[in-house]
Amino acid sequence: MRISIDDLSIDLAGRRIVDRVSLHVEPGQRLALLGPNGSGKSTLLRGLYRLHRPASGSIRVGDADLWRLDARSAARRIAVVAQESAAEHDLTAFEVVMLGRVPHQRGFGADSPADLAAAETALERVGALDLAARPFAVLSGGEKQRILLARAITQDCPVLVLDEPTNHLDVTFQLELMRLVADLGLTTVAALHDLNLAVEYCDAVAVLKGGRLIASGDPAAVLTADLIAEAFAVRADRITHPATGRPHFALSPLTAPERNTA
């Protein structure tokens, strides 16, 4: 399902955080939102999953204006992997995953066999079936991300939004999580900090700075040394990854520290 973000602005506490951003994500494409802290990445995503209402502009998912949909209809189009909420802490991992079926259920009926099977399949897909009975609150950061991704899979939506999904994860699970997301084949928008993860696992990137979009397109074309210096104030030496053949960035300060030669 296509995402169309047109001339989008979002204000928080009287301050413009996202400023007239336009982006289009094609069906099945994976887009990485990149930018330094405070650039507007998470705020833009929260507009996409209906936490922050736009001050102007529009967000369309498929043929529908996202903010004209009711909550249930929106939740059937967009699944979110965001930071955990306090409400999840009193649930087991399986109960958290089952929340993904709520947009498809009516009233207060019991979970159907199909709902239960969908949750079990999702847990198996992310390698977390053995965690099902454990309290969500006691899981490690990586285990929680598996459960939240399983919930998103169980929600059975054409669009997936990930808000900094690899934060606080070890390197092994960062790679595993991004591979799992890529294998889903969904239209995906993810806010990321790691340029190399974006190049490796995403079809397109959009770079924000100060709430404005400063570049977007194919990662290999967009992420030049000059662009990275402008956006992140770091030096990026581009090399070819010996295993994948894709671009890889070695990052260092723009100004090298003086060496003590005494």
Rank of each mutant, 00 (worst) to 15 (best):
L208C: 12
F232C: 11
A198C: 05
L149Q: 05
A75Q: 00
R72K: 14
E95A: 11
L169I: 08
S56D: 08
A229H: 13
V80R: 04
A133F: 03
R151G: 04
H89W: 10
T166G: 11
P165C: 11
A74G: 06
L99Q: 10
E230K: 15
G62E: 08
K41T: 02
V21H: 07
R72T: 11
Y49S: 03
T92R: 09
R106M: 00
A87L: 12
G57M: 11
L149V: 02
V80H: 03
L69N: 02
H89R: 14
V159A: 05
A117G: 01
H248V: 05
A64K: 14
T188L: 03
C202W: 04
V189Q: 10
G217W: 13
R246C: 00
Q83D: 10
G40Q: 06
H104A: 01
S39T: 12
L66R: 04
V181D: 04
T244D: 04
L162C: 12
A215V: 03
T187E: 05
L149K: 04
R151Y: 09
G38R: 08
A128Q: 09
A119F: 01
L91M: 14
F136N: 01
H104I: 00
G62S: 11
K144G: 06
I214C: 14
V205W: 05
Q83W: 13
A220R: 13
R259G: 03
R246N: 05
G107P: 01
R259T: 02
V171S: 01
E176F: 03
A79W: 01
A32L: 14
H24K: 13
Q29F: 05
A229T: 15
V189S: 02
I239F: 13
E124S: 13
G38V: 06
Q174S: 10
S39W: 14
E88F: 10
I5F: 04
K209M: 10
R20C: 08
V97H: 02
F232E: 08
A262F: 08
G57C: 10
L69P: 05
A182D: 06
L223C: 10
C157Y: 00
V126R: 02
G141T: 08
L251S: 08
G57I: 07
P253V: 10
D111H: 07
R179L: 06
Q155R: 04
